[in-house]
Design a protein around this nucleic acid. Structure first.
Lengths: 354, 354
DNA sequence: CTGAAAGCGCTAACAA
DNA sequence: TTGTTAGCGCTTTCAG
């Protein structure tokens, strides 16, 4: 009897040998496709069981030229916004028999680049990028690859990559209109570094509201934060120094709002009685704070799901005739814009004088 | 000239053909190992560049019998405790040239099982399990596999798998002693489902403090939560009903503490003036709450790092003579216990009468 | 219904 | 210094 080497997992030929059939037959039994005589099948199955055989995904991938793996690149897994995306992408992928190779770029462009190379090397079937700091050169590079790529809430300047964005501009406008409607006129905004495209869109949305003509005499002051609670504290201080009279602060995200809240409290300013604060993303945390943070909600899970579906769709279409990527890449359905929603909570109210 | 099929990425033979050498030579140039004549090398490199060639990790894995991929199974990526672990594991893995296949079991045992199978099929080089709900049968199953496995802050009953745990019992004791020292005598604990081993250890630690004899007349009431902020609200209510006089609530984790905080506030009970609250894990959130939550901190990143190191070490040792896994598996250094630390913040104080 | 054989892309002896 | 060759574990024609 031919013994298995210790420490090596069983291969298809181990099974074949034990069942007294060819590897082709074992393969047929495993895949369940072609007809195999019942007794033969039973014998193979018994051998599989006895050996604890599991087909090697690696060999399979090499042969079938598909890995059933999707790469997912996120900006920062420690930011509670991303786990939501990760969960959504993973759910959708798993449902369709794919796994997810998670790449946390930790807000470091060079690390992101390393990961992108890695994903290509690993021959993932597709890549989802939810990295707000995606650099332009990455975009070009990505567009030049044969792997399908989709962007989630980020853009790659120049490259026509399919993307699903939430309507950041509308979100900015929504947040601004909310406090403007409440009666605030001196408002501040704590933004994020400009390499983050969403940040710019949100500012634009706020500006839209200010410029709409519906609210006369608005004064808007914008400072830059870093999207983190800690960084927001300095930004809040800076904002208050430049515009001591602000009664409403719109934040780039909920983490920023948390920092603003803490800073204001430290300064003895009450929220929302003295100053209103609006967050963005509506992460679970927003509802847990005291006061609960008014925030703009994105459809995170829809975004993750869409991204995966789009990717699989592309992968399926790839080998079909006439499906030129470039052509497809320029069709307008390639970028979808998801609506956002304002969740009004306790951190916003009328200005002190109202 | 032999054209590349469109949509297929370049292979080593494409490069070889273009450079006018054999695939072996290309392989040598890529790996940089054996000596290759400078001009040959340059030619190959030029071809690599021109073709945008990247070696297939899949083929490499098949040949070398190693994937340079680690599987990481976590209970619930949406719980802020886990991103810390993920980050740590990913950092350590990346540093050593490995990638991480993330599996979020979403607190669902069957999903966890699916993932474990998947990781085996994918022939990952090792598996890190940070899943508090790990079932006993999984443990047995894992121990029977040839792939190295390490556990992070969880145990598999029966199976002697290497593990890194934080000292949950000491943590429970620390939390209890803190409020006991403050003068509290009627204390409550909101635990987690018993399938979670850490939950039991923490209860035991609390009990240790109560039974130490140093604090006479202590009354401890334990209720079960689910480790989530929402679930904790019902648990807090239940606790307050069973023991209306509690002045301190020790929580299984920070999310539970958040729920307790909200519930108490809703009831008009002030924290810490009326009731003290202690969390566990010291996730960033804990410091952001109002009041900031006193919490027991674990050395999350040390745990992740250790796990990866242990795994790689095992992988390296695997093919060495005399490294019988079973024997190794029974050595006591196989489980390390990391100390915890209490972070005292604003959610705890002396009882109302003190 | 089943087996033989080729080959996915790569590496590593072994020759030359 | 370089090429030839075998083979990693699997699937899939193509014969039988």
């Amino acid at each position: 009897m031919h013994n298995l080497e210790v420490g090596r997992s069983a291969t298809i030929s181990d099974v074949a040998r034990r069942a007294g059939v060819s590897t082709a037959t074992v393969s047929r039994v495993i895949s369940g496709s072609t007809t195999v005589r019942a007794t033969t099948r039973a014998g193979v199955l018994a051998a599989v069981e006895a050996l604890g055989y599991r087909p090697s995904g690696v060999a399979r991938s090499l042969k079938l030229r598909t890995t059933h793996t999707l790469g997912l690149v996120v900006t920062d897994i420690a930011n509670p916004y991303f786990p939501q995306i990760v969960r959504a992408v993973e759910d959708a992928a798993l449902e369709r028999g794919h796994t997810v190779l998670l790449c946390d770029s930790a807000d470091d462009p060079s690390r992101e680049e390393t990961y992108l190379d890695l994903l290509i090397d690993r021959r993932v079937d597709g890549i989802v990028i939810a990295s707000s700091g995606l650099q332009a050169r990455h975009g070009d590079w990505l567009a030049s690859r044969t792997v399908p790529v989709v962007l989630v809430n980020c853009t790659a300047r120049g490259a026509a990559l399919p993307a699903i964005l939430s309507d950041n501009r509308a979100g900015g406008r929504l947040a601004a209109e909310h406090v403007l409607d409440l009666g605030h006129r001196r408002i501040g905004h704590i933004s994020a570094p400009p390499r983050n495209a969403a940040a710019g869109d949100r500012v634009a949305g706020i500006q839209d509201a200010v410029d709409s003509g519906r609210y006369p005499g608005v004064e808007l002051t914008v400072v830059e934060g870093d999207g983190q609670a800690e960084g927001a504290e300095a930004a809040t201080l800076a904002l208050l120094e430049r515009a001591p009279g602000v009664t409403a602060i719109l934040c780039y995200n909920d983490l920023t709002a948390v920092g603003a809240l803490r800073t204001l409290r430290g300064l003895g300013r009450r929220v929302p009685e003295d100053v209103s604060v609006v967050g963005y993303d509506d992460i679970p945390l927003a509802a847990w704070m005291e006061p609960p943070i008014t925030s703009v909600a994105q459809q995170t899970s829809a975004m993750g799901r869409w991204a995966v579906e789009r990717l699989l769709e592309r992968m399926a279409g790839e080998d079909e005739p006439g499906s030129d990527r470039r052509q497809l890449g320029e069709r307008s359905e390639n970028v979808v814009l998801l609506p956002v929603e304002l969740c009004v909570r306790g951190s916003t109210g009328p200005p002190p004088w109202a």
